[in-house]
Design a protein around this nucleic acid. Structure first.
Length: 544
DNA sequence: CCGAATGAAAT
DNA sequence: ATTTCATTCGG
């Protein structure tokens, strides 16, 4: 529970509230509007009977949450738990009904479904170190602000020898491994090819007409070839959806109209709260508007395995369901029936039109374009105002509906469709988690905080000493590169040559690097080297 | 929301 | 080589 508790999106304080929380609220509203889904979903659940394992696992994955919490420092984290407790309970007891209810509403649940996407990066050794020792430093310098503390921590870290760092590295690695195995889908970058967005490349051809926000939002989308040929979202970022796309979506077929549509939608979404309804209306209107064109454009998609096509339709369907008034089941049924009755292109087109916006959103969501807290920031940078409200919804609902639909389809078709074929796809949409994680999940579950606490605490005084020593040494070296005999009486006195790290390196890596490597490292290494080697060996043996 | 640190991963 | 983002929290 603890882990779960922490988990979830603890809002990074400011970051979150700006974007995420708000969206959450929206979600709630949205849900209220369409309670219908619940029933449907529930049905699906009970009917289909998901394996509990899955659910469980996913819950565990919540670990993704940020690592630690609960301990003193992060009271803030705990704050936004309003909903959690309840929800969690519900989940445990009536996981079916609960999760069924409104995944959308409850971010937590939603996250369960697609934890990997929202999962935060596992902290590196240094960050863990910070977590543990920040309080110490702060105690020493109560007045210094956090940045200063961080700086000190950086120095401290730099002065640590491998042996001392080892526990942190190990823990970091351990956690990372567990985390990754728990969240196979995890992506380090939530946005599409962020590093590449040079800003200058930000195309604005068509989008130029639209409001800036819209313009910005377009790139992450399916980016029409015309826009940014080279800048298509990379697959790695798209994750599970990619497969979907390949198989089902005819994204590539997107036309100007579509893009426009999407953009507009985005625009609306940017102020979801106020414009939610409107956006829906608008959507409809747009449908009407663009329908003719779309029809024309959409036409081409002839040869595709029927399965795929069906699946594709599902995709659209479910997407639509989320927001439309249609009943899920109704809609699905309709679709299914329709599909098998005849291959009406019309039907297809229609749905297509209908959900363009939604689809886009969904795409964004599943493509991990939308992230967690941080996405706010990114969003701003990108100006990718997306509605996150229904993302979660989409996930859950979609998933369930999809499965159900598939099942129904299978029935209808007399099992013409093998589950094997479809299932994988479906699963890929979300997380593969349950597969091999069973055992690992437990590891994941481990409480990082606890582990951190258990880590050996380093003495600040020692750090200070070393600092001095280093200075001394440096000085000495400067004056004369004689031999440095350091007092090993100190402690381990191991202190390896301060290895130039981090931002220092970044800043003026060259200068500092030079300095360090040239004068510092070489001379005094003898004794150190041995120790270092020892430490390394020890570390290695321990690992094994 | 930035930034201060380091580091892992991705581009 | 460079960029993101993971942590924390005062400004």
């Amino acid at each position: 529970m603890n882990s779960i508790e922490n988990s979830f999106m603890k809002p990074h304080r400011s970051n979150y509230h700006s974007g995420y929380l708000e969206s959450q609220q929206l979600e709630k509203v949205t849900i209220d509007q369409a309670p219908i889904n619940e029933k449907k979903i529930e049905e699906v659940w009970s009917k289909h009977n998901f394996d509990t394992n899955k659910v469980k696992v996913e819950n565990l994955f919540n670990v993704k949450t940020t690592w630690g919490v609960s301990s003193g420092e992060d009271d803030a984290v705990d704050k936004n738990d309003d909903f959690h407790d309840e929800d969690i309970l519900m989940m445990d007891t009536t996981k079916e009904s609960k999760s069924v209810t409104d995944p959308d509403e409850d971010p937590q649940i939603a996250e369960d479904i697609s934890p990997s996407h929202h999962a935060r990066r596992p902290p590196n050794a240094f960050l863990i170190f910070c977590k543990k020792h920040r309080p110490v430093v702060r105690q020493r310098y109560p007045t210094t602000e956090n940045r200063g503390v961080t700086k000190i921590l950086g120095e401290w870290w730099a002065l640590l020898n491998v042996a001392e760092k080892q526990p942190y590295n190990d823990l970091a690695k351990e956690y990372k491994d567990a985390f990754l195995s728990a969240n196979p889908d995890f992506r380090w970058y939530k946005l599409p090819a962020p590093p590449l967005r040079t800003l200058t490349t930000r195309p604005t051809t068509i989008t130029s007409k639209l409001p800036p926000s819209a313009a910005m939002s377009s790139p992450p989308t399916l980016t029409l070839p015309e826009f940014t040929p080279g800048k298509l979202a990379d697959e790695s970022q798209l994750g599970g959806l990619t497969s979907l796309m390949n198989n089902n979506y005819t994204v590539s077929r997107k036309t100007e109209q579509d893009s426009l549509c999407c953009e507009v939608e985005d625009n609306n979404n940017e102020n979801p709260e106020t414009e939610w309804k409107d956006s829906r209306m608008e959507q409809k209107i747009q449908e009407m508007f663009s329908s003719p064109i779309n029809v024309i454009t959409k036409v081409p998609m002839p040869p595709k395995p029927i399965k795929k096509r069906i699946f594709e339709q599902f995709e659209e369907e479910k997407t639509c369901q989320e927001n439309d008034n249609f009943t899920n089941q109704e809609f699905l049924n309709k679709v299914v029936d329709g599909i098998f009755a005849s291959d009406e292109p019309k039907e297809q087109r229609k749905s297509d039109r209908m959900c363009k916006g939604k689809r886009y959103e969904r795409f964004m969501f599943e493509g991990k374009l939308l992230g967690n807290k941080r996405d706010t920031k990114l969003t701003q940078h990108h100006k990718t105002g997306k509605t996150e409200q229904e993302k979660p919804t989409g996930q859950e609902t979609t998933k369930l509906n999809l499965e159900n639909t598939i099942k129904r389809l299978a029935e209808r078709t007399n099992a013409k469709i093998d589950d094997e074929d479809l299932k994988p796809k479906v699963e890929r949409v979300r997380t593969i988690s349950e597969t091999s994680e069973g055992a690992k999940s437990s590891q994941v579950n481990f409480n990082l905080d606890l582990r951190i606490e258990r880590l050996p605490s380093l003495s600040y005084d020692d750090f200070i000493r070393r600092k001095r020593d280093t200075k001394k040494r440096k000085l000495r070296i400067k004056t004369d590169s004689h031999k440095i005999q350091r007092l090993e009486n100190n402690k381990p006195s191991i202190h390896s040559p301060p290895p130039v790290v981090g931002s220092k390196k970044r800043k003026n890596k060259q200068s500092i690097m030079h300095l360090n490597t040239s004068e510092d490292a070489l001379p005094n290494d003898n004794a150190l080297l041995g120790l270092t080697t020892l430490a390394t060996l020890a570390a290695r043996s321990e690992k094994m």
